[in-house]
Amino acid sequence: MGEVDMSNAVEVTAPMASSDAARETKFHTRGVQVFYGEKQALFDVDLDIYENEVTALIGPSGCGKSTYLRTLNRMNDTIDICRVKGKIELDGTDVYSDKIDVVHLRARVGMVFQKPNPFPKSIYENIAYGPRIHGIATGKEDIDQIVEESLTKASLWNEVKDRLDEPGTGLSGGQQQRLCIARAIAVQPEVILMDEPCSALDPIATARIEELIDELRDNFTIVIVTHSMQQAARVSQRTAFFHLGDLVEVGETGKIFTTPQDQRTQDYITGRFG
């Protein structure tokens, strides 16, 4: 049963999820194709992302995980040669339609990047920036509160509460990444996209971020790209395996790692390629 049709894969795996009926679909994507100029990077990806769950995207390098992730908040718009086709719905509304403003979309769907990229401003300003531009908070007290809350949620508050005025770029790599997560949380998004958030971090910092992701699941929907199988297994409820621009298989994380349906998935998770 080496070649399973991927639409089958979705159907096969979906019922395996535990409390399927209770889950709300956050992102509903069908037939997503992405082109960089002439080159096609994604072929007909059908994937649902459920609310208050962590969905992990795994696959060998260059298979289109980041590309898929970036279609969800239209970050691909910033690449001139990039074209996106297919249906990508957030709560039933197509994100590429006129009904959704891209600025508003990105406020609802936050993003944490592979490399920590704090603004070269103070820690406080890093967090306060988002709420301020969106008008979520106006008074100094409101913003103070958001800063404290976000940093606490990102489990960074205790480390930085005495030096909020120092530049965010002066923190350690792991702290910077948590700062970026706090910054994403501060605008109170519905979904947080994370593109290999731990790839630049040591095991201890990684463990803290993984814990954090698990806590954040209560309030946010999270999509995480990772190269670490263990990480995907630890933090995610559902896992999607990409290969050469195809979504090969998606399902409950436990199932994907124990009984993969597709030969390619099996080869990848057992380390035969990738």
């Binding site: 908040n73 970050m75 910033t78 600025v103 508003h104 979309l105 990105r106 406020a107 936050g110 993003m111 990047f113 490399k115 990229n117 704090p118 603004f119 070269p120 920036y129 988002g130 531009i133 969106h134 970026c180 910054r183 994403a184 605008v187």
Partner: peptide, 14 residues
């Protein structure tokens, strides 16, 4: 660096 632009865009800055 483009990462600064991405950071701001990702937060929903115009």
């Amino acid at each position: 660096p483009p990462s600064i632009r991405e950071a701001a865009l990702g937060l929903g800055a115009s």
